[in-house]
Nucleic acid binder design. Structure first.
Length: 421
RNA sequence: GGAGAAUUCGCCUAGUGGCCUAUGGCGCCAGCUUGGAAAGUUGGUUGGGUGCAAGCCCUCGGGGGUUCGAAUCCCCCAUUCUCCGCCA
């Protein structure tokens, strides 16, 4: 939800943001009109209600014989109050619906346009070169006994898999490394619920245009989360936070579930795009003024992970039209995938400014004064997909894979994963 | 799954239709007192909406209802606790 005060004071800013997203700015005028209707309705209702309250005091103080007459007069008033209240409530709901359709205000500097209009901020690390024909992650995974797709599909269907042996150990090692880095940076670890109620799903903005991406359990009216961001954002819903000691940062570990409804036939080989995976997610609540600085910090922690794992990557500034409705800016880190000859997304970090927190009613009290809606940010610190880049980047001619130094302590010092004989 | 009880301001708590504009305590903040503190004492201390403003409106777990008027009466829902059942 955008800030209604901004909508009223600077509608041109909202229009410019919509244009950058390649969306229709006409919604601004509809929202302004709905806001005016809503406020008029509130004033009308509250005037009548004040009248009713005043009358109620007279009734209470009146003598027995006067009461009957006064009550008769109040009945008509009560009826009008009831109608006015209904009108005001509906006008409020209508405004929320119209204004709720407006995406977050794009931050200055975000490239305008669609998916292809991203800007590369930097490329880091040498693209790996091989003096042999590199194998893709699934072939390597099968040689190492790390990935078992056939049995995954037997048990659960397409896009399901087993991680086995060194594959399972690598994933746990990766998550452990990420968690230790997060602890070092002052994050509070959380293992989050992966089933959430509709209010939280709605509040975090995942029930919008892409709701067919989400698993839903009708018998219990619960959603399976596609990222722990949902639970992490809901964690402090309806709270007033103390941010005097800086941002509150959480590292949420969870299994993530995605239907991948819109991607039939895309990335069907291996574990690049699957229905279920694990992720360690960073989530930060901070003062709005600090959000952009915090965003840079999240990216820096992600880049540290990339470098610890010896991956070649680039950081991109995602274009406005490719942002989710909650994000004001998004940086993706994409790692080089040798057998695809291209960069693929390994992390995503969004600055949602106050958009998400306004809907979830999360505030803080700067300088002990009036409350202010906080900013929320989120970003990936490790996921199952990273195994794809790790396996392919560090492979040898015989199908063995060198373990990055940073992961070895989590694997009993193992330096090389050898193919099964 | 069944039965009972509960949910009031950061915490505890009073409150069985109008004098609730919600009591009292703890904690917290400020003043007085003090060399400084403690103690004492006085005051303040939920959040939101709307209005140029004065102000007004809402907020007693959530939603609906009864009533001129609801923290209070009725219905539905959520959560917590106790007991029983079932399962591990």
């Amino acid at each position: 939800m955008i800030d209604p005060a901004l909508l009223r004071a600077e509608p041109e800013v909202v229009r410019a943001s919509l244009l950058a997203r390649r969306e229709d700015p006409a919604v601004v005028d509809r929202a302004l009109a709905a806001d005016q209707v809503r406020r008029d309705a509130i004033v009308h209702f509250e005037t009548l209600r004040a009248e009713q309250n005043a009358h109620g005091k007279i009734v209470a103080a009146a003598s027995k014989e006067d009461k009957a007459v006064l009550i008769a007069a109040a009945q008509d008033l009560a009826e009008r109050v009831k109608i006015a209240e209904k009108v005001a409530t509906e006008a409020g709901e209508n405004f929320t619906r119209v204004a709720g359709g407006i995406g977050n205000i794009i931050i200055d500097g975000v490239p305008a346009g669609g998916e292809e209009n991203f800007v590369t901020l930097r490329e880091v690390g040498d693209v790996p070169a091989f003096d042999f024909e590199p194998r893709d992650h699934l072939e390597l995974g099968e040689m190492l006994g790390a990935i078992d797709m056939l049995r995954g599909t037997k048990v659960s269907g397409s896009r399901f898999y087993f991680l086995s042996g060194i594959g399972a150990r690598l994933e746990i090692a990766l998550m452990s490394l990420a968690l230790d880095r997060a602890l070092e940076a002052g994050f509070t670890p959380l293992i989050t619920p992966t089933l959430v109620n509709p209010a939280i799903m709605q509040g975090t903005g995942f029930l919008g245009a892409h709701s067919d991406e989400i698993y839903y359990l009708p018998a219990d009216d619960l959603y399976l989360t596609g990222t722990s961001e949902v639970a992490l954002a809901g964690f402090h819903a309806d709270e007033i936070l103390d941010l005097t000691n800086g941002p509150k940062r959480y590292a949420g570990w969870s299994t993530c579930y995605r239907r991948e409804a819109g991607s039939y036939g895309k990335d069907t080989r291996g574990i690049l795009r699957v229905h279920q995976f694990n992720k360690l997610e960073m989530f930060s609540y901070c003062a709005p003024a600090e959000a952009e600085t915090e965003h840079d910090r999240l990216v820096a922690w992600q880049e540290e992970m990339m470098q610890l794992l010896g991956l070649s990557y680039r950081v991109i500034d995602v274009a406005a039209g490719d942002l989710g409705s909650s994000a004001a800016r998004k940086f993706d880190i994409e790692a080089w995938i040798p057998t695809q000859g291209t960069y693929r997304e390994l992390t995503s970090t969004s600055n949602c400014t106050t958009f998400q927190a306004r809907r979830l009613n999360i505030r803080h009290r700067p300088d002990g004064g009036a409350t202010e809606t906080v900013a929320t940010l989120n970003g990936t610190l490790a996921t199952t997909r990273w195994l794809v880049a790790i396996l392919e980047t560090h492979q040898n001619a015989n199908g063995s894979v060198a373990i990055p130094d940073a992961l070895r302590p989590y694997l009993g010092g193992l330096a090389v994963a050898e193919p099964l004989s």
